[in-house]
């Protein structure tokens, strides 16, 4: 009975982490999937959102600036706004770049952002991180605190999903698809391609900031290590590719599935004896890489192939 209860709580944790990653994957889907913008700096927007929401919502503290005691919904909105503003600046600068140049530039920007949070000790407490971040419904008794956190995360994911599906089917989404498929003809049809791309980038960045904020509240603690590129950028790419780039449902399923695989594999590898258990931690990473390769080669469309819309405007 205890065991079953334990599994249920772990299931909730998988849904919570997976749901937060789904926000990141949905953000990436707008940029990469819909519009073809190769943002390899997810960790940067993630860490901005996490710190903004953390610092605004915590109680005043001597360790870092403020502690402004904002209610969580407001701090999350602020996290989205700040991430969106940074996304706008990045987009204005980098939008002309071709796919891989954009990837390298955004990867570099994410590193610079992480360095800022790490070095500006007076503002962020530097490498020592921000503690006591409030968590939604944490005062409820177990298991209801976990249940409500999961409900909040999944509700946000659901809202994002419906908004994105509407956007995708709207004229705006059709033009985005048209730009990705054939930029020149979209331009020829009189669309302001650069402006639309900036819009997609900004919306995606805001969602990554939201994901970062939710992560900070879930962990109740944030430090610059949480913006490690392996788990904050590359893992999100794997999620979107496995789920199906261009498909919102795919982004969500990919995030939940890959997080489950990433997390649950350890339950088995930790049963290995002694030294092997330690080394098998590396094998997990190897398997993630291998899985990505297999998906790319055998199922390039992912689990949920993109549903092509009739893009009348691009002809």
């Amino acid at each position: 009975m205890d065991q079953l209860y334990g599994y249920s709580l772990y299931g909730l944790s998988l849904l919570t982490f997976g749901g937060i990653y789904a926000m990141l994957a949905l953000g990436l889907n707008i940029q990469l999937g819909f519009t073809g913008l190769f943002n390899a700096g997810i960790a940067g927007f993630f860490v901005v959102g996490a710190y903004v929401s953390a610092i605004l919502s915590t109680a005043p503290s001597e360790r870092h600036i403020g502690g402004f005691d904002w209610p969580i919904p407001f701090s999350l909105v602020a996290a989205m706004v700040v991430s969106a503003l940074i996304g706008w600046a990045v987009a204005r600068i980098c939008m002309r770049l071709r796919a891989d140049y954009l990837a390298i530039a955004t990867l570099g920007i994410a590193e610079i952002l992480r360095l800022i949070f790490k070095n500006e000790t007076d503002l962020t407490n530097g490498a020592r991180g921000v503690s006591y971040i409030p968590k939604p419904y944490e005062s409820l008794a177990q298991p209801w605190n976990h249940v409500m956190m999961t409900v909040v995360v999944l509700a946000i994911v659901a809202v994002l999903y419906f908004m994105l599906e509407r956007a995708r089917k709207s004229p705006w989404g059709r033009v985005m698809a048209a730009i990705r498929e054939n930029e020149d003809s979209a331009r020829a049809a009189g669309k302001n391609v650069d402006r639309l791309r900036v819009q997609a980038f900004v919306v995606g960045s805001a969602m990554m900031g939201l994901g970062g904020g939710m992560m900070a509240h879930h962990l109740k603690f944030i430090d610059p290590n949480a913006a490690d590129p392996t788990t904050a950028t590359f893992l999100v790419f794997v999620m979107l590719i496995v789920g199906g780039s261009g498909n919102n449902k795919g982004a969500i399923v990919g995030a939940l599935l890959m997080w489950t695989i990433w997390s649950a594999t350890e339950i088995f590898t930790s049963m290995l004896p002694g030294d092997l258990a330690i080394r098998s931690a590396y094998i997990r990473v190897f398997l993630i890489g291998l899985m990505l390769q297999i998906m790319l080669q055998k199922f390039p469309q992912g689990l949920f192939p993109e549903k092509r819309l009739e893009t009348g405007s691009s002809g």
Binding site: A99, Q293, L296
Partner: peptide, 15 residues
């Protein structure tokens, strides 16, 4: 497309 190959190189990097 370049995006696919770059992601494949991410995967290879981890491996």
């Amino acid at each position: 497309p370049a995006v696919t190959v770059v992601i494949a190189s991410f995967g290879l990097m981890l491996m």
